[in-house]
Design a protein around this nucleic acid. Structure first.
Lengths: 120, 120
DNA sequence: GCCAAATTTCTACGAACGTGGAAATATGGA
DNA sequence: TCCATATTTCCACGTTCGTAGAAATTTGGC
């Protein structure tokens, strides 16, 4: 993840419609959702939604696969991880407690950790 | 953190100059850095930098405090935490391993955890 | 091959953003 | 009070973004 990648991802998410789409796909999980169904979920014309999905895809935030006539989109969690790492790079030079809140926010679904509810 | 807050934070960061400023302040820690020094660090006119700092401040990503003639800016890590929580809300309905990469990325400086280097 | 369904590409217009000059405002020293 | 320093606000220009109509493309059924 370099600056250009980060800008592309952040710009893609900095739009109410696209942000909503991405969050919907995050919740949809690996199974994903067809383009038409996404467009219908937000009452958006198919061509407009196609543009938004293309922008999210170019940013690496979502992936697509074809299933017969439909194109299924799904979230790519790795891109968020990369973005977070880029943003918080060298955040805690000797003082781990400084960026502890971020760690807490990420542990929503930790496999081995007790998820604390400290959403500041 | 609601949608509007998230959009404001993401928009603020979706700009090469502001992203660089925020990352600089993340690394500067709680001590922070005066506006003039930040402007000089990027060879940016003071008024332009002032505008960028104002945008980051309005988004809640940085704070400012006055120290005599200077205004010191510093990063607000909590906003990143909130943003991350908002993005990944309900990311792992029953399948914690799905969004594990994000947790890994956040554990750069975990106080109690062994930081693994799996930057995807 | 022909038609319908699903999605994408092309295009253009209005809206929002980024930049920095000039002027205004705050702070501290003499 | 007067001046220098530090930062911010005002403003206007050019550039980029968002949207959706129309047309093109891909896929599957018959």
């Amino acid at each position: 993840m370099d600056t250009d990648d980060a800008i592309e991802s952040l710009s893609a998410l900095a739009h109410p419609g696209r942000l909503a789409v991405f969050r919907l796909l995050v919740q949809a999980g690996t199974e994903g959702m067809p383009a038409g169904e996404i467009a219908r979920a937000f009452n958006t014309p198919a061509n407009t939604m196609s543009t938004q999905l293309a922008i999210l895809t170019r940013a690496g935030l979502i992936r697509s696969r074809r299933a017969s006539r439909s194109v299924i989109y799904s979230a790519d969690y790795g891109e968020v991880a990369g973005l977070l790492g880029f943003l918080m790079q060298d955040c805690c030079q000797g003082r781990p407690e400084v960026c502890a809140p971020v760690l807490q926010a990420a542990s929503c679904c930790a496999p081995n950790t007790t998820a604390k509810e400290t959403t500041s």
